[in-house]
Write a protein that binds this DNA or RNA. Structure first.
Lengths: 350, 350
DNA sequence: CTGAAAGCGCTTACAG
DNA sequence: CTGAAAGCGCTTACAG
C-alpha cells in the first residue's frame, strides 16, 4: 500500500449505495466485486477491498437473504436446565455446524414457550431447528409436526420417542443394562436406586433398562431394587446423594450396589457411605452416570457411563445435513447412541 | 371455534402476499393486523389470527428489518476453550438478554478469526457484540476499535485492560490477595503456585495479586513463592495437579500452602499430597479457584474463590443496555467484580 | 465499466 | 376495508 488510505467517513457507511458513492464506482460494480464475478480489472477489485477495509462496510445480510441468499443459520432450542453433558453436546454440535459455515441462533426454551421460540426461528428463516435436552413431550411433538408441515428440517437430541421426530439419543436402557450386567458379574443381586424416581422420559428409560436386565435373570424388579428417594428433597445433587446413602445405612437390610442418576449424586453417596464407616467398594459398590471429569477425582474413582458426546453430536449433524441436502428424506430417522461403561474403583465384588 | 378450519394449503405459505390471497384480504390489511393497528373489525382480526394458526405463516424477519424494525439480536463471541465458569457466564447473560427480548447469535471465536466473526455479526446488524473469555489482546483491541467506529455497542467480559473497551471482569489480583491474606492469618509464609505460569492476562493479574500481597508484608516474591510448572505438561488438570504435588513432595524444602490455578488442579494436588502420606490441611494447605460444585466433593472440602457469576452477568447486561439506550455514553466503562473467598476444609494453620 | 430497472417481502402513507 | 405506490438494501439481467 503506497497510497495513503482514503479519508475516514464521519458516519459509518450503512448501504451499498453510500459505499459506491464513497469509492466512486457504480453500485453494480461494487456488487460484482463483492460476489466475485468475472470481467473486472484487478485495480477496481483492489480499490473496493481497500475501501471496505477503511470503512468497515458490511453488506446487509437481511437484504442479501431477500434476494435469495441462504441464511446459513441453524436454530437451537436448549432445555432450560443446563446439565454439563447438555452443554458439552451444544458445544460439540456448534463446532460441527461452524465447520460447515452455519451460524447458530440459540434460545433457551422455558416450558410452554416452544411455540414462540420456533416461530421466531421460522421468521428468521433458519434452515433447520435443533431441540437439545428434556422437554414437555406433547409440546415438542407439536413443534416437530409444524416444522414438518413447513418443510423445515429438525433434529431432536436426547429426548426419545417424539412421534415423527428425527431423533439422536443415547440408549439409556442399554446403559443401565451394562451397569447391571457388570454388577451381576461381581455377584450383586440387590440394587439401590439413587435419584431415579423422576418421571422424565430419559429417567424412565433407564429404570426400564434395569427392569429388563433383572427380567433376563428372572429377578423380580420390586424385590431386587430399592429406592429411598421419597425421604429427601433433591436440591444440591452431592448433598442429596449423601443424604440418601445415610438413609440406606440406617436400614436394617440394604442393597450391596447403588446406581445413581448422575456422577454428582454417586459421589455424594460414596462419601455418605464412607462417613458411616463403610468401605467402597468392599462393603458397597456405587455407579455414576455421565463420566464427567469428577469421576477420577473421587476416592475411590467412580465407575460411570460415558454418553459418547462426540458421537452424538456427529450423528445429529449428519442427520441434519442429510435433511438439508436434496433429495430430502421424508421418513423420520432414529439414531441410537451406544453407551460406554467405564469401570473404575467404586465397583467391586460383593 | 365452531367453524371448521380452512383447508391446509399444500405448500407452506412464505410471503404476506400469498397469505393475503389465502385469507381473502388485502396485504395492507394483513399488515395492519400483524402490527396491531387500530380501526379493524374484531372479526377481521380473528380471521387473520386463525389463518396464521392454520398455515403457520410467519412474516419474514429480514424484510421487517429492511423496513426499519430492530433486529433485537446480540452477537456473542465465546473463547474457543470453554471452561465451566465461562459457560455459566454465557448462560446467565443469555438469560438476562432473553428477559429483555433479545435473541443471541453465538459464535465460538478461534484465535485469528475475530474479524470474520465480527463482520458476520455486523452484516446481521446485531445491536451489540459481547466478547466473553480470553482472547488475543491485540485482536480484540482492534475489534473494539472497529465496533466503536461503527457505533455498535460492545462489552468485554473477563479480559481486562483492552484499550477503549467496556469491560466487566473479576478483580483477580484482589482474589489472590484474599487467599494470601487468609493464609498469612494461618501462619503461612511460603507458597507453592500450581499452574500459574501461563502468560494469559487473567493469570498474570493473579500472580500480580500474590506479588502485591507479599510486598505489603515486606516479603520477597521470588523467595516466598515456588513453582514446578516446568516439570510437567498440563493435559488433564486433575492429573497435572497430582503430578505437581508429587514433585513438591520430592523437594527437600517445600512450601506449606499451595495456590492452584483452578479447582481441578487443586483437587489433583490435594490427592497427590494425600497419596504421599501428607495430611491436608495439617501438613499442607491447598486452595482452588472458581468455587465449582466439586469443591464440596473432595476430602477435605476445598477453599476456593467464587467468581460471582451472577453479578458479572448482571453488570455486563447493565452496561450493554446503558450503551444501547440513548443517550449513549461515549467513555469506556470498566466494572470490577469483587471476588468472594469461600473458606473450607483444605486450609488450616501451619 | 456505468446506469436505469425490476424484484425479494415487507410497511406505510394515500386515495378510494 | 381495498389497491396502487414508494422504498428499505441488495442482485441481476440489460442496454449503453
Amino acid at each position: 500500500m503506497s497510497k495513503p488510505p482514503p479519508p475516514k467517513p464521519t458516519q459509518p457507511i450503512r448501504s451499498a449505495a453510500e459505499f459506491a458513492r464513497y469509492v466512486g464506482l457504480a453500485r453494480t460494480t461494487i456488487s460484482r466485486v463483492l460476489n466475485g464475478q468475472p470481467g473486472l480489472k484487478a485495480k477496481t477489485i483492489e480499490r473496493v477491498h481497500a475501501a471496505m477495509e477503511a470503512t468497515g462496510f458490511t453488506p446487509n445480510a437481511h437484504a442479501l437473504h431477500l434476494k435469495g441468499k441462504r441464511t446459513a443459520t441453524i436454530g437451537i432450542c436448549m432445555e432450560d436446565l443446563l446439565t454439563p453433558p447438555a452443554v458439552k453436546k451444544l458445544v460439540a454440535l456448534q463446532r460441527l455446524l461452524r465447520t460447515r459455515h452455519y451460524a447458530s441462533l440459540i434460545e433457551v426454551l422455558d416450558p410452554g414457550h416452544s411455540r414462540r421460540v420456533v416461530r421466531h426461528f421460522l421468521s428468521m428463516r433458519v434452515e433447520a431447528v435443533v431441540f437439545l435436552g428434556h422437554f414437555i413431550e406433547e409440546e415438542i411433538t407439536q413443534r416437530v409436526q409444524e416444522l414438518a408441515n413447513h418443510g423445515t428440517p429438525h433434529i431432536v437430541i436426547d429426548h426419545p420417542n417424539i412421534a415423527g421426530a428425527n431423533t439422536v439419543t443415547l440408549d439409556r436402557a442399554r446403559a443401565m443394562g451394562l451397569i447391571v450386567e457388570h454388577l451381576f458379574a461381581l455377584g450383586h443381586t440387590h440394587f439401590g436406586l439413587l435419584g431415579m424416581s423422576s418421571s422424565l422420559r430419559t429417567v424412565q428409560d433407564r429404570v426400564d433398562g434395569v427392569r429388563e436386565a433383572l427380567r433376563i435373570r428372572h429377578l423380580d424388579f420390586d424385590r431386587h431394587t430399592h429406592s429411598l428417594d421419597h425421604l429427601h428433597v433433591r436440591e444440591r445433587d452431592f448433598d442429596y446423594g449423601r443424604a440418601l446413602a445415610r438413609s440406606f445405612v440406617a436400614e436394617k437390610k440394604r442393597p450391596t450396589a447403588f446406581l445413581a442418576l448422575n456422577d454428582e449424586i454417586a459421589i455424594g453417596a460414596l462419601r455418605g457411605f464412607q462417613e458411616a464407616g463403610l468401605r467402597v467398594p468392599q462393603d458397597v459398590s456405587v455407579t455414576g452416570f455421565n463420566n464427567q471429569d469428577i469421576c477420577i477425582m473421587s476416592t475411590p474413582t467412580l465407575t460411570s457411563i460415558d454418553q459418547q458426546i462426540t458421537a452424538t453430536a456427529e450423528a445429529a449433524a449428519d442427520m441434519l445435513f442429510a435433511q438439508m441436502s436434496p433429495p430430502a428424506r421424508r421418513r423420520p430417522g432414529i439414531h441410537s447412541i451406544e453407551p460406554l461403561l467405564v469401570v473404575r474403583g467404586s465397583t467391586g465384588p460383593v
